[in-house]
Every structure is written in C-alpha cells, then in structure tokens.
C-alpha cells in the first residue's frame, strides 16, 4: 500500500512536470523547430537578452507586477485593518463585494473593465492594465491580512497607550510589526497573480503594450521562439531556488526553536 501511494505521487508529479521538462530541454536545443533535437546549445540564452520584444514585455510584466502589488497592498491592508477592527454586521457584505474580482470569472472582470476604459475614453495601454491588476490584487491582500488583524491582541496597543504612547505611535510600534508578515505575503500573492495573469491583461491593454503572457499568446499562433523557453527556464529555476531556500530556512528555524525549548 505504501509503495502504491509513492508510485501514485510519482505519477502525478510526472504529469505535472512533463511539459515543463520538455520546455526546459528544448531551451537547449540547437534546432528552432520543436520536432527535432539537433544538439546542445546555449545560443537561446545569449540571443534572449538581445530580443527586444521579449525583454520589453518582461520589463512591462515586472513593472506592472510590482506597482500593482504595491498599490493593492496599501489599499487592501488598510481595508483589512478597518474591517478586522470593526465588529459591524455589514462587514460580511463589504467583504463579499470586495472579493468579487477574485471569485468572478476572469473573462467577465476583463470585459467589464475594458468597457469602462473605452467609455471613459482612456486609451488601452500600460495605465489601464495597471488599474486592472490593482483591482484583482486587492482581494488577495485582504484575504491574507484580514485573519491576522482579527488575531491581534488589542490590549497590547492599549497598554502601550497607558504607558504614554500616542495612538499613532502604538499603531506603528505594536500593531504594524504584528501585521507586517501577512502584509508581505499579501504583496507576494498579488505580485504572483499579476505576473501570471493573461485573461484580464488581454482585455485591458493595447497600443502595443504587452506583458509576457500576451507576447507568448501572440507567438503561440506563429510558433514560440526558443528564447521564451530559455527565459522561462531561468525564471523557473530562480523561483525554485528561492522557495527551497525559504522553506529549508523555515524548517531549520522551527527545529532550532524546538531544540531550545527542550533545553
């Protein structure tokens, strides 16, 4: 039974990684075609940095991701703080409305924003895409920060004020550091969502401004350039290493904590 479940896990992982491995292998393929293997090469990694279309869409993706995640984090964290502090029954309604962009079909969000921008007379481009990304980033920030706000021990802030802190000081010295990890997670989550988004960007950008997803979509019709495979391999490896380091670090800290507690 044990062996069976191990084999099954292996099978599922093979299914999840088959296309990724294929893509990585092709990033080293000397042939431009997907069908044949013509020997090992690093060429695509060299030409990648000279490919203007890919580099500019990478820049757009990262800039839009960081900016939208920053703004979404500010708006979302403030909202989570306000919602978590109040015990009004209307909080449930506010929350269901705030979560709409997260729960609704992406295509409907994209289409509705496109209609709004067109009616307002805005040219579709980086700015409209940025607004769209902030819009769907906010709920993810609320989702991660709100539970932390609800866990806050408000008596600590009250104690700080008894000891002479102004409310402002007690917020920044007691409450904010308590929320910071959740705010960071919310930022990363909305950043990830922004970088990976295709459907909403597809409807809200234009005038030649495209992020990586849209560039890949356009290429998919004519054939993906091997440079894209190279870029994805680099991005994938970087994220893999970051995740491993972060998690190994977390596990190690946990172990150290347990050890010190035993002593």
């Amino acid at each position: 039974m044990k062996k069976l479940s191990k084999a099954y896990l292996g099978l599922v992982l093979a299914f999840l990684y088959a296309p990724i491995v294929v893509l990585m292998v092709y990033s080293f393929n000397a042939s431009k075609s997907r069908a044949v293997w013509q020997g090992f090469t690093f060429d695509w990694y060299k030409t990648l940095f000279a490919n203007e279309a890919i580099m500019s869409s990478l820049y757009t993706t990262l800039l839009c991701g960081v900016l939208s995640a920053l703004i979404a984090t500010v708006i979302g964290s403030m909202a989570a703080y306000g919602l978590g502090k109040s015990r009004k029954a209307s909080g449930g309604l506010v929350l269901s409305i705030a979560y709409i962009p997260m729960l609704n079909a992406e295509i409907v969000t994209g289409v509705s924003l496109m209609l709004l921008f067109t009616i307002m007379g805005l040219d579709l481009g980086f700015f409209t895409m940025l607004i769209a990304h902030i819009t769907f980033g906010i709920p993810y920030v609320i989702l991660t920060v709100l539970p932390k706000v609800r866990q806050i021990d408000w008596s600590l802030a009250a104690a700080a004020q008894d000891l002479g802190c102004t409310p402002w000081q007690s917020f920044w010295k007691i409450i904010f550091p308590e929320l910071l990890p959740a705010i960071g997670t919310g930022f990363l989550l909305s950043l990830t969502m922004s970088i990976d988004d295709f459907i909403i960007s597809f409807f809200t950008t234009g005038n030649g401004v495209s992020n990586l997803s849209i560039t890949i979509y356009t290429m998919a019709k004519r054939g993906i350039k091997p440079e894209i495979n190279a870029l994805s391999t680099i991005m994938f490896t970087v994220i893999f290493v970051i995740l491993i380091i972060a998690n190994v670090g977390a596990v190690k800290r946990e172990k150290d904590k347990k050890r010190s507690m035993r002593i």
Binding site: L16, Y17, A18, P19, I20, V22, L23, Y26, R34, A35, T192, D196, F198, L212, S213, I216, Y217, A220, I224, I228, S232, M235, F236, I239, F240, L243
Partner: peptide
C-alpha cells in the same frame, strides 16, 4: 511550483508532447 511557470507556456508545451 508549476503554477509559477506561465500558464500559457505550460499549456503550449503540451503541444510539443
């Protein structure tokens, strides 16, 4: 982890298989 690889690209990669 696969969720961090662009979703269009992951899907496109199935074509080569």
């Amino acid at each position: 982890l696969p969720m961090w690889m662009n979703f269009l690209l992951r899907t496109y990669s199935w074509l080569s298989i």
